[in-house]
Design a protein around this nucleic acid. Sequence first.
DNA 1: CCTCGATTTATTATCGATATCCAATCGAGG
DNA 2: CCTCGATTGGATATCGATAATAAATCGAGG
Lengths: 210, 210
Amino acid sequence: MAEGPASRAVAELRRRIVMNELTPGTLLTELGLAGDLACSQAAVREALLRLEGEGLVLRSGRQGTTVTDLDADTAAEILDLRRRIELRGARRGARRAGAGDILALRRIQAAMEQAAAAGDAWAVLERDMDLHLALFRLSGLHAMGPILARCILHTHRFRLWAPWHRRPLGETARRHVPILEALEAGDAAALARELAGHLDTMVDRGVAAA
Amino acid sequence: MAEGPASRAVAELRRRIVMNELTPGTLLTELGLAGDLACSQAAVREALLRLEGEGLVLRSGRQGTTVTDLDADTAAEILDLRRRIELRGARRGARRAGAGDILALRRIQAAMEQAAAAGDAWAVLERDMDLHLALFRLSGLHAMGPILARCILHTHRFRLWAPWHRRPLGETARRHVPILEALEAGDAAALARELAGHLDTMVDRGVAAA
DNA sequence: CCTCGATTTATTATCGATATCCAATCGAGG
DNA sequence: CCTCGATTGGATATCGATAATAAATCGAGG
């Protein structure tokens, strides 16, 4: 999984930020992280460049790089955006799904359940992202994948930041089963419905929902 | 404007790709570009990392990095996304615009007209991007700025790739005036209307529009 | 003639050292 | 006591060299 120092640095820092071990505003120095992660400045530099591309850190030239802020308004807006992207993608992709695609999706879902059983919250999130991205890839809208990835990442971060959104890991994993069943049945309408429901229950929108 | 080799490399490569001097699929090598742009491999490397974050190139490990593909379907989808982001941003931002904000926007618009008068198509696009981003920034939805930036960039690229979408530069610049006027009047509805019209006429949607 | 394997080559990935730059600090003058 | 300017410290930015790796090429064997 770890192909090199740079990849490891990206994965590790991304995990720390999304899991809120590194809180918003934290100042990161390239040389300092190089010490922590036991790699060279160049590797850390590449990692920070990538994380900036994902919106997790902000590099301000020679003043250093900081972990980006979070706010509820933007998080809600991003979730809406994500909802729209995934729904439109699902409607396009439902008909193109081959048996191989569905098998691959089921494998990811199984891996997610396995991670949930092991109590590895981060691995669950990674598999969740894999699954949603693989599903979206069926739409053929290649250039939008990274945009969706960014939205998913920020959704995850916000959910962990606002702890009242947390759910049992196993439940999170099992929630995806109906989505895959709708896809396998070739029912685009059901797929969109299940996916929409999944995204809508992802975040508690105030107490009124109860 | 050019702060260093890396910044210059990013700007130059971005220009070449968006202006379609570098066509989709072109293979780029770090050392080769370093020769072209008269800088070190590290500078080119940073540039390519950033451009990958913008979706303009695809880095495939040791197999090299290529200019990303374009397709009309995705372009249409991205334009829709952009429309949605900008419209929601405008509705939020209309009330918060101060006199200083409007002055800054007018300055950018003036610079765009100047670039148009000079016949500098690329500068017009840069100012267009500046203007739309500055306008969106009024919404306070910080984390979405880079997503919008990406959408605008791809919209520009697609428009230049499909030459029938081109318009006289001066017209492009002047199109933004009503938007700023609506903003200055504090009329959120008019702002949304003008902005929507601007985005809708950006791309000819088939011959039916004639 | 075709296939498989070793070799070569071209390219990225990584590192350590140096140059550059911004900002905070300290000191002198008013 | 306050302000302004030089200084110093700490960080990024950049470079050149080296290591590692994957694709392409060439050659021998079948």
